[in-house]
C-alpha cells in the first residue's frame, strides 16, 4: 500500500513565516540589561532630587591634580595622593529617607564611560568623603564625592547617585544630575585647578 500524504503548502508557509517572526521578535526584544535598567530621574546643580530612598543636592565643583592629606600617624609626614587622571570633587548634601545605608555616586561621561566615586580609602577624608559614609535616616550629611577621571571625560559629564555603595541597583532610581560641565565651565575649572590641594585638617595645615 503506497499512500503519500499530501503536502499542505499553506501550512508549510505559515510555519516558516511564524518561525521567521519569532526569530525577528527575539532579536528585537529589549535585552535583560534594558529591561532591568535603573530608572533615571533628572535634576541639576542646586536642585534637591528625591529618589526612592534618598535625596541629594549637588553644589560646587573643583578640580585638582593631587591632594595633600593628614599623615596616617601623629608624627608621620603629610601624604600626597595623586590622581591617575584628575580629581573632580563635588560638594553635596545627601539624606537617606527610608532606611539607613549608603548613597553611592558615579560620573557618566558624554560618550558613556562611567567612573565610580573614589572610595573612602583614597582619598581618606574622615567623614567628608560621602562615598562610604553610613547615613542615618532623616539626618542630612554634607561632604563631597570625589572622582578620578581623565580630563577628556569632563565635558558633558553628569553625576549619578544611587542607593548603596556598590553599583546602581536594577529597577531602582538613578538620580542623574546635570552639573553644567559645558566647555566654558570645564575650562574655568581647569584654569583654577591647583597641582596640590591641601585637604589637611585645620590643626595640621600650616
Amino acid at each position: 500500500m503506497n499512500r503519500s500524504l499530501p503536502i499542505r503548502w499553506g501550512l508549510v508557509v505559515a510555519t516558516l513565516a511564524s518561525l521567521a517572526l519569532i526569530v525577528a521578535l527575539r532579536r528585537h526584544e529589549p535585552s535583560m540589561d534594558e529591561k532591568t535598567a535603573p530608572m533615571l530621574i533628572r535634576g541639576a546643580t542646586g536642585q534637591t532630587l528625591e529618589a526612592r530612598n534618598f535625596s541629594v543636592k549637588v553644589g560646587k565643583l573643583k578640580l585638582a591634580h593631587a591632594y595633600r592629606l593628614d599623615p596616617r600617624t601623629s608624627d608621620g609626614p603629610a601624604r600626597e595622593v595623586k590622581a591617575d587622571g584628575i580629581w573632580l570633587s563635588a560638594l553635596a548634601e545627601v539624606t537617606v529617607t527610608q532606611a539607613n545605608g549608603y548613597v553611592g555616586a558615579q560620573l557618566r561621561a558624554r560618550d558613556g564611560r562611567v567612573y565610580r566615586a573614589a572610595p573612602a580609602d583614597r582619598p581618606d577624608l574622615k567623614g567628608f568623603n560621602l562615598a562610604d559614609l553610613y547615613l542615618v535616616t532623616g539626618l542630612p550629611a554634607n561632604g563631597a564625592y570625589v572622582f578620578d577621571v581623565p580630563i577628556d571625560a569632563l565635558e558633558g559629564a553628569t553625576l549619578q547617585f544611587f542607593s548603596g555603595n556598590g553599583a546602581p541597583a536594577q529597577l531602582d532610581h538613578l538620580a542623574d544630575v546635570d552639573v553644567g560641565l559645558d566647555a566654558a565651565h570645564v575650562k574655568t575649572l581647569l584654569d583654577a585647578a591647583v597641582p596640590m590641594l591641601d585637604l589637611r585638617s585645620p590643626e595640621r595645615a600650616p
Binding site: V81, R116, P119, D148, V149, P150
Partner: peptide, 13 residues
Amino acid sequence: DDATLRFDLGPGL
C-alpha cells in the same frame, strides 16, 4: 603608589 587595596579601574585610566 600607596598600597591601597580598594580601587577601581576606570575606563582608559
